[in-house]
Simulated assay, not measured.
Amino acid sequence: MNGTYQRRRRRPVAEINVVPYIDVMLVLLIIFMVTAPLITQGVKVDLPQGEAEALPTDAKPPIVASVDAEGFYYLDADGNAGADQPLELEDMATRVAALIILEPERNVVVRGDGQVSYNRVIQLMITLQSAGVPAVGLMTEPEQE
């Protein structure tokens, strides 16, 4: 024997450690499972339960879509206490879409008569949503004591 020691060379390991990826995937799975029930479809409405919060005073006057007791639709885009010409839903959708394109930060609210059918208010809200309104609010009167 020569006295020389021969070293065996190790080959580099060419495997990927997938444990961190599995951890990340499990966390994402839990996040999606928690948030999935929170995502709902349909018209989003926050109904007031009494005294409603007023719109900020520094905001532009909202676009007001109204339904009167007979079920006629009106649009007030100027903040001048309402329009006097009834509109069809298609006309209202066209006008509101144009207003939202011009001023996307403006609020849109629905003012419905207390005697009007719930279906008429829902049809108006669906029309506003299809016109591109991101959120629709409901106008209320202060409670009388």
Rank of each mutant, 00 (worst) to 15 (best):
P56V: 01
R106M: 02
T57W: 04
R9A: 08
V43K: 06
V45M: 08
I16E: 13
D68E: 00
E105N: 10
D68Q: 05
A81W: 04
I63M: 04
P86R: 01
E51G: 05
Q115R: 01
P142W: 00
A77V: 09
E141K: 14
T57D: 12
Q123E: 15
V27K: 09
A69W: 02
V96A: 00
V67F: 05
S130F: 02
T4H: 06
V116W: 00
P12R: 08
P134S: 09
Y74G: 03
G137D: 12
V13W: 09
E15F: 13
A36P: 08
L29C: 14
N2R: 08
F72D: 15
A81R: 09
L38S: 11
V67K: 02
L26F: 13
L47P: 10
K44Q: 13
D58C: 01
V13L: 10
V67A: 04
L138D: 11
N80S: 07
Y21F: 15
G42H: 05
R120A: 13
I31Y: 07
D68P: 03
A98D: 09
L99N: 05
Y73V: 14
R106I: 05
M125L: 02
Y73T: 14
Q6W: 11
V67P: 07
P61E: 05
F72C: 06
V18A: 11
M139A: 14
Y118N: 12
P104S: 01
I63W: 03
R106L: 00
V24A: 14
Q129N: 10
A54D: 10
Q123K: 10
P61I: 03
Q49N: 12
P48F: 01
L55I: 12
G3M: 03
P56E: 06
I101K: 09
G50S: 02
E141L: 12
E51Y: 02
L75S: 01
R120N: 11
S130A: 07
L138A: 10
